[in-house]
Design a protein around this nucleic acid. Structure first.
Lengths: 169, 169
DNA sequence: ACAATAATGTCAATATATTGACATGAAATA
DNA sequence: TATTTCATGTCAATATATTGACATTATTGT
């Protein structure tokens, strides 16, 4: 046993395992409780993520499917279905990019914007309060830093995402 | 503007939003990179979670589907499909509980145990190292505490999980 | 004992999520 | 210019994940 491995040699494996199991459980609960919180409006956490992204100023004039996928860290193919459902509900619209006939520009509609501002935002605000009960502002900053750090590692681990790391924040 | 709301009134909403968006992205990447890491063995993160649970000493003699679901924080119905696939690969077995004919005891098989020990464990160990690169032992402890804390909030938010919080760790 | 109640696992329907395949269109190269 | 290459979005197949419904079996109350 080297001195370097030393001190935490037996604790470390169980610790990493526990951390990742908690992350796995939190991921399950995020989708379960998040979707349930917005159930009255028939919105899932993925639709929530898409609509939230589309309300961002940089995406105000529409965003390509590929860019949206890179931003949310999901596959293009996955978004097709989510966008189809959101379009059927008139919350988003697809228009052909004038500068590239292959590209479809995804944009939130007035109805979607209204849903977000009037219905979703208050629910989400309450949801954050409940899920972060007991977290001080500094706790939230630290936790966010840890997630940022882990996310960079995940991106390095992913051949696709890694290369275009700089492209979309 | 009350004094209590005060200091962080404008920072807080964006901060919580960022935290949860990072959690959402990490969840996506966890499943993407995790499943890819074990792709050579045709194992997904969910199957990983199930096999990992079944190797725990408390579950050595088998565990009911409902208890396993409560442990992983997924629905019973969801596990049915995962267990069916794992059973088809001979990594787990279902036996009728002698003490309750409704209950099926889920247990890992010798083949499953071998897969876990010989094939999965080393891959998972490397995966943890890569995903936690730059995390000191103390970082890991803090991050785990934050996830634990958030998980308790999620459970309070969930009517089902909340009641049986004490039942399964 | 027996009827009402509740627990247990599964099936069905819907919504993610992944990879692989592909038609279309743009870019690069010869 | 013509051909090869690459980018873009979508379809198909598979694996999660949810809720609702249900048959089977325990448990409870009378």
């Amino acid at each position: 046993m080297s001195e370097k491995a030393g001190k935490y040699r037996d604790i470390a494996p169980g610790l990493s395992n526990r951390l990742f199991f908690r992350l796995y459980q939190c991921a399950n609960m995020l989708h379960k409780t998040g979707t349930r919180a917005l159930d009255a409006h028939r919105i899932t956490t993925q639709q929530w993520a898409v609509l939230g992204a589309l309300t961002r100023p940089p995406f105000a004039n529409g965003v390509a499917v590929g860019d949206l996928a890179a931003f949310l860290l999901v596959s293009r193919q996955n978004l097709t279905g989510v966008l189809t459902r959101l379009e059927a509900m008139d919350y988003i619209e697809r228009t052909v990019d004038a500068k590239d006939n292959r590209s479809r520009l995804i944009r939130i509609t007035a109805k979607g914007r209204d849903l977000w501002d009037e219905d979703m935002r208050p629910v989400i605000s309450d949801y954050y309060d409940a899920a972060l009960r007991g977290f001080s502002t500094e706790d939230r900053i630290h936790m966010t830093h840890y997630l940022d750090k882990m996310l960079r590692n995940f991106k390095d681990l992913d051949p696709e995402t890694c290369s275009e790391k700089k492209a979309v924040e």
